[in-house]
């Protein structure tokens, strides 16, 4: 199904809907506040943005980078409007903050795959590693893509990302914040990176999974 593309200030409809993300109401109807695609449900309308910063949501896994270290917490850049806070208590194992320096555990620049645990009213974003799948990331390569393209990279029921992992034999973690970690044989990491870049660029095109698979297979053969 092709969705209608709209830009900020564009009139969408005079029908009655509940308003979701990226739309606003004026006297004569509903307008778009974003550049994106119109997503109309039975009684609900929203815009799927084509561009935009990642907005933290509880439950999302993101990749963060240690920026600051405090007595019992780390501050992470999570490629978002707000930094993430990882308390020592949320580290995957017990830390004795009186005898251990957090600097020795995760130094500035370290990357972690974490889950967003809580967002307070004052927009403090708390993340945790006490979750299945959360981990410290070492080695490999980080890729930054437009966060709104993340769902396409993952695919329906993880179909796209599973295929890439299978075909490149790489380890891949996709943060909802648009940061992707790829680890494996360097030449395969390169292939996976290129594949993800193509998805980012052509996210709107149908039949992408097969094309990407063919692209990976072809590049693998050319190695």
């Amino acid at each position: 199904m092709t969705r209608r593309m709209v830009i900020p200030g564009e009139f969408i409809t005079d029908k009655k809907y509940n308003l979701g993300e990226g739309v606003y109401r004026e006297k004569d109807g509903i307008y778009s506040a974003l550049m994106g695609l119109v997503d109309e449900k039975e009684n609900y309308i929203r815009i799927l943005p084509l561009r935009g910063k990642y907005m933290p949501k509880v439950g999302d896994f993101v990749i963060g980078n240690v920026r600051e270290i405090f007595f019992n917490s780390w501050e992470l850049d999570i490629n978002s409007a707000h930094n993430g806070i990882l308390n020592a208590d949320d580290y995957y194992k017990e830390i004795d903050t009186f005898n251990e320096d957090l600097l020795d555990i995760l130094a500035p620049g370290s990357s972690v795959f974490v889950k967003i645990r809580e967002i307070t009213h004052s927009k403090k974003v708390y993340v945790t590693m006490r979750e299945r799948g959360a981990r410290v990331i070492t080695g490999g390569r980080l890729l930054k893509i437009i966060p709104t393209k993340v769902p396409r990279v993952i695919g329906k029921q993880r179909s796209m990302i599973s295929m890439i992992i299978k075909e490149t034999r790489c380890n891949i973690l996709v943060g909802q914040n648009g940061i992707i970690w790829i680890d494996g044989k360097p030449e395969f990491v390169n292939i996976a990176s290129r594949a993800i870049r193509v998805i980012e660029k052509e996210a709107h095109n149908p039949g992408l999974t097969n094309r990407i698979r063919n692209m990976i297979i072809k590049e693998r053969e050319e190695l």
């Binding site: 900020p8 200030g9 606003y24 307008y31 974003l34 550049m35 943005p49 561009r51 910063k53």
Partner: peptide, 11 residues
């Protein structure tokens, strides 16, 4: 601003 996906009433 529009390109950054910042919600706005209009250009």
């Amino acid at each position: 601003l529009a390109d950054a996906g910042i919600p706005m009433r209009n250009l």
